[in-house]
Write a protein that binds this DNA or RNA. Structure first.
Lengths: 142, 142
DNA sequence: CGCATGTAATTAACGCGTTAACTACAACAA
DNA sequence: TTGTTGTAGTTAACGCGTTAATTACATGCG
């Protein structure tokens, strides 16, 4: 059955929900002049150590063309370093730099506060339930 | 508590879920050379009749600057018409044109099939549950 | 070796999201 | 009427998503 109104449309609901959640994080990122995607890339590099570009794009949920641009921006600000892989001239290895780690450390507490607040307002049970449903939806469609 | 892995992160989950759902609709829209946002604007105009730009942007969940670009594109293809409102030289009234209605009619059946398929695979109950949770999340954060 | 095929990354082109600035017009008060 | 304030819409600038094309290198086959 087609959704009768746009508010009960799944794509719309997902769009609005993400928008509502991200609105809480955006000011924090903007204050440090980092985009949401740059932040995801930095987090992956911080947690996973040196990683090749393809895996980084996959983990950070960023498309390869976007990753190329993000790498340029982050490298220009000395947040990461970019090197060719030994033994394969095509591959590129990215590593977080001290300035990048410093940014992660600076923002993590604030990030935790925001996430906790969302979880508290929405409810722990409902959050787990929502995450389960989303995971199921993703697996079913992919 | 911070999400330990990115797969259980709410922003990520919402992003992936929407991506998974939209992947089903994208080929249909691409085949007719219409973007997702242009499609939303057309649908609103089709269902609600002539509407002013501000209300249209709100209903279609598109920001004003984007709407300006979308209007240009749709007007250029004769899908909609654009007129100044009587009595207020600032306001703009958008109306769907025959070619626009024809596109709506042409795509609606296919859209229904895709939506039904998603609902069947995911489950009617779970879909309703998910929509309820998303609505609650949106209301709680906004 | 030489050539075809495959893969990693980049570039290009276009549209939208986002924020801020700007234009045009309306409403209202002095 | 004039000047101020407010509103609707547009423009600008920058970054990302998306798709397709392109470059650089690796692999494998003859």
């Amino acid at each position: 059955m087609l959704p009768e109104n746009t508010r009960r449309s799944l794509p719309m609901a997902l769009l609005h929900a993400r928008e509502a959640v991200m609105a809480r994080f955006r000011p924090m990122l903007a204050a440090h002049d980092v985009t949401e995607q740059q932040w995801r890339v930095l987090r992956v590099l911080s947690e996973a150590g040196p990683v090749e570009a393809t895996e980084l794009a996959d983990r950070a949920s960023v498309l390869p063309p976007s990753l190329t641009r993000i790498i340029k921006a982050l490298e220009g600000r000395k947040f990461i370093t970019r090197n060719k892989a030994e033994g394969d001239g095509r591959r590129v290895v990215l590593t977080i730099a001290p300035a990048g780690s410093a940014l992660i450390d600076a923002l993590s507490p604030e990030r935790r506060v925001i996430y906790d607040d969302i979880e508290q307002r929405f409810g722990h049970e409902k959050l787990e339930q929502l995450l389960d449903l989303l995971e199921s939806l993703i697996d079913g469609e992919s």
